[in-house]
Computed example of a mutant assay.
Amino acid sequence: MNRPGEPTVEALMARIAALQAQNRQLTERVVKLEEELALARLHRFAPKSEKHIDRLFNEAEQAADEDAADNEDGGVVVLPDTGLPASEGATGKKRGRKALPENLPRERVEYDLPDDQKACPCCRHQMHRMGEAVTEQLHIEVKAKVLQNVRFKYACRHCDRTGINTPVVTAPMPAQPLP
């Protein structure tokens, strides 16, 4: 019994089917937009260099992985000897310059604070030497040697004990031609 103004069952079923089709289309559109967003983020924030070892595509490794998946007997895969030195895995590159060779002779040049600057700026107590900052630079005259620039650091034991503020003062060094 249909009342006047109410839709029939067939009309309701057609409306439900239309809404379900629209829902599927919107779901597909959301998935597509999420993929586009992920791709845009990858393009924007991904490393620009393709030199990373973990990003290289190696067909031989992929084939070995597939063979290992096929032969799950626990056997060890023996790689042929190429004559190249063995790599130690993907280790990150260290930043900065390489250390100077240990066999070069070293000359120690020390920079210290004058006695009037060894007083604590907070409490005026005498500061003690707490360490040193050592930098090395290659110095070439007739023969190469390494100059070790040692800058003594001072701190106040009184301020350190009382916990107010422990100032650390490092001896200045003359300006270097190359930083």
Rank of each mutant, 00 (worst) to 15 (best):
A60I: 08
A155P: 00
P174D: 02
M173V: 14
E136K: 09
A68V: 05
P172E: 12
E141S: 09
H52A: 12
R157K: 15
A144V: 07
L79E: 06
S87Q: 09
V109R: 07
P4W: 13
D70N: 11
E6K: 09
L37R: 14
V168T: 12
G163M: 03
E50S: 15
T170Q: 11
E28R: 07
I53Y: 12
A64W: 08
G96H: 09
A119W: 01
I53V: 15
M130W: 03
D73H: 09
L37E: 12
V146Y: 04
F45H: 15
L113N: 01
V9K: 12
A17W: 04
C120D: 00
E88P: 00
H128E: 14
D115E: 15
P177Y: 02
K145C: 01
V168L: 11
F45E: 15
D70T: 10
L12E: 15
L178S: 12
R108D: 03
V134I: 14
N149D: 08
G5F: 11
A11T: 11
L39D: 12
L42F: 10
C120Y: 01
R15Q: 07
Q137D: 11
P7W: 07
A68L: 15
G96P: 04
Q126D: 09
A175K: 12
E59T: 07
L100D: 02
G74T: 03
N2K: 15
R44Y: 10
P121N: 08
R151L: 03
A175Y: 00
M127I: 03
A11L: 10
P174V: 03
T170G: 03
K143P: 00
D112K: 12
V146D: 04
E136R: 07
E36R: 10
H139T: 08
L19R: 08
D160K: 13
P121Y: 03
E88D: 08
T135E: 13
A171V: 10
G131M: 06
K94S: 10
A99E: 04
L113R: 01
E136V: 03
Q117I: 00
Y154F: 13
D112H: 05
R95E: 12
E59M: 06
L100P: 03
V169M: 08
A60L: 13
A133S: 09
P101G: 05
R151C: 11
E6A: 12
Q25M: 07
T27S: 10
D81C: 01
C123H: 02
Q25P: 01
A144S: 13
